[in-house]
Write a protein that binds this DNA or RNA. Structure first.
Lengths: 147, 147
DNA sequence: ATTCGTGGTTGCTTATTGAAACCAGAATAT
DNA sequence: ATATTCTGGTTTCAATAAGCAACCACGAAT
């Protein structure tokens, strides 16, 4: 995690979240949670990261309200990491990132995991930035208003 | 940047992009580029990060096709970092992250930077994950199909 | 000829990561 | 009862990356 010293810490809604999810592992942990993973060992096996790192990341995510600890649903004497509302609200972020990766990091026809609508089995729609009236906006069509 | 050793490097479209934008500074650099910044010194002043770090990040972003170098538009003998199509395609990612930050990292009424439609001056619409037919999807409504 | 602004690079110190070993409680096996 | 395994971590320590400050090169201005 970088050490933001300037005005960055304060008023920009992009900078603050990056203190929580701005490293290479955290969003993968959350993605795995969307895929149904809940237990320490599941995350560790899925991601192959060192246990101390996972431990630190999970603790940080709990401290920041992305996960909460709950007694294991299956009766085992352990605890589970379950996404909070705040954590589930990362779904658009991870999906946008996934679509970017899908478009720009795979060659035509290269096999990849696909996210589909569970109901229809169809791929989900590409996410776009839209104005209040529904017009699709590019980076040039939007501007930041400082507080 | 973490060191992904398992299957993570390969088939998941979430993991690959994180090798490029998965640190705390990179997305802020890109956000600044959306705000019109192009020059080394502008990024450094805006973000307050060490010059060697900025240098490394920009070189990595150029190497990964997010920025490209172009001769300065204003006649000065330097070069500018300008977003490629791939870089501009990060707009939905950064916007989704911004909206998450806006919702979950600020208290009611706390002053913050706002992203508005340049044409109408109105805030942009909240981004949502949608199925092909337009239905809004939550994390539970989508599933990953492995290749 | 000298200073200044821009865009870096080079050392050096400190913080973070990562691998492996270790540890503790609960369940399971002997 | 005792030992073994499974789960979920913590501790230790080496390697790597971040951060800071000093330095440097080039062109423009003085």
């Amino acid at each position: 995690m970088p050490k933001r010293t300037t005005h960055e810490e304060s008023s920009c809604p992009v900078a603050r979240p990056l203190d929580v999810v701005g490293d290479g592992w955290t969003l993968l942990i959350v993605r795995d949670a969307f895929d149904g993973l809940r237990r320490f060992g599941q995350f560790q096996k899925s991601l192959g990261l060192a246990k101390n790192i996972l431990s630190a990341r999970l603790a940080n995510l709990v401290a920041n309200g992305v996960f909460e600890l709950a007694p294991a649903a299956d009766g085992s004497p352990y605890q589970e990491y379950v996404l909070t509302e705040k954590g589930r609200a990362l779904f658009p972020v991870i999906t946008a990132l996934r679509q970017w990766g899908d478009r720009w990091f795979f060659t035509e026809g290269e096999p990849r995991a696909r996210l589909v609508d569970r109901e229809s089995g169809e791929p989900i729609a590409p996410m776009r930035v839209r104005a209040a009236d529904g017009r699709v906006l590019g980076p040039e069509d939007a501007t930041v208003l400082l507080p």
